[in-house]
Design a protein around this nucleic acid. Structure first.
Lengths: 148, 148
DNA sequence: TTTTCTGCAAATGCTTTGCATGGGA
DNA sequence: TCCCATGCAAAGCATTTGCAGAAAA
């Protein structure tokens, strides 16, 4: 796991070498994405960026997120109910634990995932390039006061 | 794994005991869903049902699919690109292998998934009630003629 | 100066909803 | 008969697109 500052520099350099322009909006969006560990919605990213750039539009957020996604710098997480979230904090694939009550999303990291990956490649002949592993359930907090 | 006929009966009985009415449209939709192994889109289900009931509306398909989803009889699979598919063939959670080139979806079944499940519960304290495991990559066929 | 990016607004596409009619129970 | 279900059309909503002006290189 590399530091945030280094990661930020890397992304900027990649943008530059890919011929993309470095705009203040993009810098702001990248900053928010790599520092927000809460798996924010696009709307939430938008609101955070707007504190820097009040004139920023939602469309720009969408475009930049799509660009970074193409570059492999972030993942999209789709909740069960149709809504989407962005995970730019850790670009490497990893499972998510999604609390169906409070909608909290926790990054999980267990070795067994690699075993599944290997087993699937060998059994089905797929060349796996990515995965989305979402586990739905109740987080420890919600297991207690979940009388509803 | 139970037979299709038995599964069909089970769903009908469950509908009845839950106070839902048995309509020819519902029967037709259920038949299509539990027999179609291709992980069809809603649109595809719609077209198949229309051969039985030409007057069927998309809205009815959506409503029935939502009902069956609530009953736990089917899953929704979200492809990377925003489009959704329905998996009503096997109601038990299982990983999907999604080919990003030809959009084929393969049901996978590997023991290692249970190990991941257990590890997550123990490590993070979540009470896991469901999961959606999508692996993206290239199927064996597309690995060959994928020069594009 | 050239070309890309931004931001607005309109368009899109999937899904849901309201409501009058039809049809199970 | 009573209500739920259907099907149409309209509404909703998140996301995408077109385009004129702004800004990076």
């Amino acid at each position: 796991m590399i530091g945030q500052t280094e990661r930020y520099e890397n992304i900027i350099n990649k943008l530059r070498s890919d011929g993309f322009r470095i705009t203040p909006q993009r810098l702001s969006i990248i900053k928010v994405l790599i520092s927000d560990t809460s798996h924010p919605s696009i709307e939430r990213v938008y609101n955070q960026v707007k504190t820097d750039f009040p004139t920023t539009s939602l469309a720009t957020i969408y475009k930049t997120v799509a660009m970074l996604k193409d570059m492999g710098e972030l993942m999209e997480i789709s909740l069960g109910d149709g809504s989407n979230r962005v995970d730019g904090y850790t670009p490497d694939p990893h499972p998510h634990l999604i609390c169906t009550r409070c909608k909290k999303i926790v990054d999980a990291d267990v070795d067994e995932v690699n075993a599944v990956n290997t087993a699937l490649s060998q059994t089905y002949g797929f060349k796996i390039t990515g995965h989305r592993l979402d586990f739905f359930g109740l987080c420890p907090e919600c297991q207690n006061h979940s009388k509803n």
